[in-house]
Design a binder for these strands. Structure first.
Lengths: 224, 224
DNA sequence: AACGACCTTAAGGATACCTTAAAAAGAAAA
DNA sequence: TTTTCTTTTTAAGGTATCCTTAAGGTCGTT
């Protein structure tokens, strides 16, 4: 799978490229919007990851131009926290997904996988744990015919747990992966959200369980 | 996560240690190559950051010696700009990554995260000793279909024994590796936990044995 | 037998964790 | 803007669990 990654912050770019490469993706990195457009026009990529804030041409313009020229490659937008309105604009312009910065590598990889899968087979990207389902597109948690849309923080935490089901994750790991590595969130915040998620799981009637292991962390399991 | 940071320039070292500590890493700092080698040999670090230019022993020699002794801890090399050929040499000698000086903190943090993540995914998550298994992902001890989640202190001790199965480890060594070198735990505490672990092994029905050698130490063996 | 090394069990106390509620922050609506 | 609603975070009280200490064992060595 071949990806184009446009990001002007060199440090971040290098790190991301390393990890994507390690995960078997073939990655071309560019550092401004104009280059991104040039490369993307070649239309030889399976997916494109676009930062919005870039020199020479911003990500939204790149996106618009590509779509106008009939390039249908799936595009994932990277948006800073403050650019919420850009996210919506981006989706209207034909982006396939967006990811707020800062993001965990795991999340980026999951989104990329979902994006590529969607392109190929149009399978809905739903994470499962026993009878519990989490739709990455609609942010809905469901079991049987009961469903509920999760708020952002709850969703991100649930996504992390789903992606690592069975594994035991410490509070710090959860903060790093669900709130971002530069977050100042405290342990108590995580506990509160775990409590919320347990209530959600009950409310949709799933058997799944988030169990705590003192001094170790938390595990999402099917239950029974 | 525990890191060893070897860097002779004191001002830089202090600053980096501060930032790493702020980011929740447990950091030991050493200021020359010989110390780096001594500390690293204990093999109790999750990652090592090695400057190349250091007094008493250069980083590449430290790296080479460690790898020759079977220490597999991931190592990130810090190289001055001019030492491009050293970077390549470093990778050949078994470094996991390198970072040219001067570097930004963000880049260093990103590389460290990438390095540790890589380690996680490479390391098989289940340790075995005969019919006894210890899952590092779930902290579960199992034999056949019987399994039990270990509390943290029991887990760490069992992990040390598993990683050194067949070898005889003294009470002091066990304290140092399972409780930390600066721990004030007493011998009796270790005995108590060894007792707990024996009971756990029985409860999952394994043949594995923790045997004591009077005045020497303890050994974990398959049994029979 | 006596000593010291090692084993096992039980109980106290620290604290990690859970839940609820309310305050603060942020979005949406008026 | 101001109001209202939703979402996020902080705070506080209660519970259960785990770590450690301590005390009384057994076993081997002298």
């Amino acid at each position: 799978m071949k990806l184009l990654y446009a990001e002007d912050e060199r440090a971040l770019s290098d790190a991301v490229v390393d990890i994507l490469t390690y995960h078997k993706y073939l990655v071309d990195a560019v550092y401004d919007g104009a280059d991104a457009l040039d490369y993307a026009r070649a239309d030889s990529y399976d997916g494109i990851i676009l930062d919005i804030m870039m020199p020479r041409m911003d990500g939204l313009t790149v996106l618009k131009t590509l779509r106008a020229q009939g390039v249908k490659t799936p595009i994932l937008l990277l948006t800073a926290k403050s650019e919420v309105e850009d996210q919506i604009a981006g989706l209207d312009l034909g982006a396939d997904d967006y990811l707020p910065k800062p993001f965990s590598m795991e999340l980026l990889l999951a989104r990329i996988r979902a994006m590529l899968r969607r392109k190929e087979t149009f399978t809905p990207s739903v994470l499962c744990c026993g009878d519990l389902n989490l739709d990455q597109r609609t942010f809905e948690l469901s079991c049987g015919d009961k469903r509920v849309t999760l708020p952002k923080a709850e969703y991100r935490l649930m996504e992390v747990l789903m992606l690592n089901q069975g594994a035991c994750l410490s509070t710090d790991q959860l903060i790093e992966r669900a709130w971002g590595y530069d977050s100042e969130a405290e342990a108590n915040t995580v506990w509160v959200y775990l409590s919320y998620l347990r209530k959600r799981i009950r409310s949709v009637g799933s058997r799944a369980v988030i169990s705590a292991k003192r001094n170790l962390g938390y595990t999402l399991e099917e239950g029974l």
